[in-house]
Design a protein around this nucleic acid. Structure first.
Lengths: 187, 187, 187, 187
DNA sequence: TCGTAAACGAGACGGTACGTCTAGTCTTTGG
DNA sequence: CCAAAGACTAGACGTACCGTCTCGTTTACGA
């Protein structure tokens, strides 16, 4: 038997919208739970009833925002690979509202369930998409290396992130083209 | 004219030792400036006289600890590549006292000088070492790809970090062997 | 025409019983509306439908519990005075479930109707009883002072309360005997 | 050895002044620790370093404000009694900044040391003053009752407080005159 | 040898955000 | 319309931590 006042679905919606808004405006490190509450007119207690911490809200906000990316492959695996790689670089380098900075902040988070959720909804889809495209490229005989495609995907994503986060010089589209070129068999 | 009481050189030493100790025990996110001060018996004021912020202390602590890695190359570039790759994986996966988590936390840091210092002392050496070894491997004609060696280095390091930080399943030695194998020309 | 579900008379009863129970167990300052609701299995909404605030519930609980004290006077006014005084001291010093602490908390209450109700049901009866007995004592010529009897009653009750609340050393039975003795004419 | 930065005496001063100000403006029940902090420009943390709770600040504020009342007796004990009684009534009925409401709020306070401090500095002086004057009146043979003077003092103060807090009809100067008159021997 | 200027230890201070608590209101389902 | 359950608003609370400040004390150097 369901009883009691049901949770207002608008609350979740408004909270996540406000969170996303603040996130892309000020960035994760400047995100304050009170600001979220104020900006969407929801009491802090209500936020804490639904999410155990700020990090949980953020994960949900990102998930609800960019969780449903789709890519419809063509029958040219090489073209697909170039397209997906380009998308990858753009999304990583997107700035304050990149999924990367949230992933970084989750690394030290003790709540493994939260990390898992973010990984399954945000990180894995990108990885799987890239790995698939690489796999199809390999099956088409266009890949010049025998490195397993999923590890190749890790290296491509990792490389992009590394350039941004560690070296602070984001990977450019040209460089991606070079790298992809180096991965393909000469024709 | 230098006058006044000279700075006690032991202070820096003790502070960095204590910082490193706490860092490897509790991890960066649980590091508190007061804890450092207490654990080494140095006043917080003294710490702030020498370092402008907690992050600076941490950077120095890491630098003084693992800043002097050396690798003496042999005349077998392939063997060197395998050795360096193995070292890389170990250092990334080292745990709480890995240089990786500090690098992550510096990403959002506004002080670019600090980031630069960490990069020059900690991040770049690893990268350059790997790039060099890759370059020598390429010159020896053993590399199966035309991707520029420095970008290959980024991908290798980035991939390792990505596995740890994003996927929370550290790269294993076996997997490195596979990857390196895929990079080399068949004999 | 009265329609709909009739109010369950047991609800009021259970609520007041639970309130009184918590009141005498934990005291007024530790009384929580949610605790009352939980402990008697009544929804908070239901409580608020019947009483406008926590204070109102408490007042009703006390009224229903100790609102019906009776004292049947004898034809010996001095003996009556001694008996009533003794009762007074006992009720004031009763502990956590004394009517005194509720009276104190009502002092700052804005709802004057509520205060009035408590006064009429709890405070005034005691006062009037004492004043009456004093009056009869005076008429019998046994009172050694010309202070009006109602003000004398105020002083007796006030003195007892003052000892408890302000000095935290409750008036003893012996002291009451002394005071009453001092009020009476020597024989 | 005294070490560390000494506490700024102005902090205490400013905090207590602000507390007293808010207390007499809005009353105890509307007193907020944040308001005190804001209104005197002192960080909340600093307040909590010096006083463990709001109640402690308030006690200190009242003590520092009205802790040093003096009364210089004349050689007419009856006149003194009338004067002191009048002062008593005025101070009890003073309104929001009366010492009475703070005393009431301390009743439920668990910290007995705090209660003791308030009693010793605020409550007892009034009581002792009144008891002394009564005693001198008795020695002069002007007292019409054999009730011990300290208990008489309790009754007078208690009666005044009772009228204010329980009956919400403060004792008037005229009534005090009547009561005092009733206590004195006819001439 | 003695003054002086900086280093140092200790801890107060301002400020910001956090997560918790509680009173009282609102909104459902079910009787 | 009542009752139960629980979501919701609003606002104060006390804590944690950072980086700064202000003392008294200590120590090397130069006058």
């Amino acid at each position: 038997m369901r009883t009691g006042r049901p949770r207002d679905p608008l609350v979740t919606q408004r909270a996540l919208a406000a969170t996303w808004d603040l996130l892309s405006t000020k960035g994760y490190s400047a995100l304050r739970i009170d600001d979220i509450a104020t900006s969407c007119g929801i009491a802090k207690t209500t936020l804490y009833r639904r999410w155990p911490s700020l990090a949980h809200i953020v994960v949900d906000a990102v998930v609800s925002r960019i969780g449903d990316r789709t890519f419809t492959p063509t029958d040219d695996p090489v073209a697909d690979l170039r397209a997906v790689s380009s998308m990858l670089v753009q999304s990583v380098n997107a700035g304050k509202d990149s999924w990367v900075s949230i992933a970084l902040s989750l690394h030290e988070q003790s709540d493994s369930e939260l990390r898992l959720r973010y990984r399954e909804r945000i990180i894995d889809p990108v990885r799987e998409l890239l790995a698939e495209v690489l796999e199809r490229t390999a099956l088409a005989g266009c890949l010049a290396t025998t490195i397993p495609t999923d590890q190749l995907a890790d290296m491509l994503i990792g490389g992009t992130v590394y350039r941004l986060v560690f070296l602070h010089s984001p990977l450019t589209e040209d460089e991606v083209t070079t790298i992809i070129g180096g991965l393909l068999t000469a024709r």
